[in-house]
């Protein structure tokens, strides 16, 4: 076959262009740390890749939810713990007041302490995380407020708060503060925490008649309320555990998705760099051959 310089230069040009394109691709793959830079690189794997990326982003979203639910529940748990401790103190005071050795002065100072504890409990009942009340059940305003007569009442209705912590798992995360603090019917058989404390306070100031009520009626009611707090706390603990388990599962899932993503993409740095080296070598060789051959001409020998 006749070879003309035109053919040679054209061949070199197309070789250089193709080689540069391959080098560019390798360079971008290495820089991005990815084998699949566009769907056309792997038509069959591209949709799967998108699905995996999406699952990963979703898992990240759930992990965020889980973290928030966890801090909400831990906060609830710790507030319920503090409430329990205060109730233990109230019980001690009631037992102390019920004994016949107490005189009126002692009773009134106990009454004062109960009153202080009630204030403290009111603050705890209105605990917030961020701008949300832990026990309000959704209302944005302070849920537990004192009315004109000094009775603690509740504002707004309670609503169950449910969070989605995993693809198919929702979890209730709020405790019904209404049932706990205000009771089902004010002054009824099942008095709320605040009504009970008020009642204890009143009984403390009633003298001996009150002491009898304290011993029999109030102590039992206090135990019932304490039980309820414990039960709620146990419930919160169970929710917290479940959240933690789900969180661990999500982290596992995240790791597996990342592994799967890496496998699907199939990027191998060592291989890419080796290829790049080969590419460089053949590019250099091509340039060298061209430079050598290009110099050869009969013109140089005709003098």
């Amino acid at each position: 076959m006749r070879i003309t310089p035109q053919m040679q230069s054209e061949a070199l040009r197309s070789y250089l262009v193709n080689n540069a394109a391959r080098g560019d691709r390798l360079m971008r793959q290495i820089a991005a740390g990815k084998q699949i830079l566009r769907p056309a690189d792997a038509p069959t794997r591209a949709p799967q890749l998108l699905r995996l990326q999406q699952a990963l982003s979703e898992t990240d979203g759930y992990l965020k939810q889980v973290a928030e639910v966890k801090s909400w529940l831990s906060e609830t748990d710790s507030v319920l713990g503090q409430i329990g401790e205060l109730l233990v103190r109230v019980r001690e005071l009631v037992v102390m007041a019920g004994s016949s050795t107490q005189n009126a002065d002692g009773l009134s100072s106990i009454a004062e302490e109960v009153k202080q504890i009630e204030e403290e409990l009111l603050a705890l009942a209105n605990s917030r995380l961020g701008n949300r009340y832990l026990f309000s059940g959704g209302t944005e305003a302070e849920p537990f407020v004192r009315d004109d007569q000094g009775r603690v009442g509740v504002d707004g209705e309670f609503h169950v708060m449910e969070r989605q912590i995993a693809p198919d798992q929702t979890l209730r995360v709020n405790v019904d503060g209404r049932r706990l603090f205000v009771g089902s019917a004010a002054g009824g058989e099942d008095p709320g925490l605040f009504d009970l404390l008020r009642q204890i306070h009143d009984h403390l100031l009633e003298g001996e008649a009150g002491q009898a009520k304290l011993r029999i009626q109030d102590l039992a009611a206090l135990d019932a309320v304490f039980d309820r707090v414990l039960k709620e706390r146990a419930q919160v603990g169970a929710w917290l555990q479940r959240t933690e388990r789900v969180g661990e599962q999500l982290v596992d899932l995240q790791v597996r998705l990342q592994q799967h993503l890496a496998e699907l993409d199939g990027f191998d740095l060592a291989r890419s760099i080796t290829e790049l080296r080969q590419q460089e070598a053949s590019y250099e060789a091509a340039l060298m051959v061209t430079a050598r051959l290009g110099r050869l001409s009969l013109l140089d020998w005709l003098r």
């Binding site: 310089p5 001409s297 013109l299």
Partner: peptide
């Protein structure tokens, strides 16, 4: 490129050949 090469091979000018 293949056909362009064949064409060039037939019609292209080779300076050495002309020399």
């Amino acid at each position: 490129q293949h056909w362009e090469n064949l064409r060039q091979s037939r019609v292209g000018v080779s300076p050495d050949e002309e020399m």
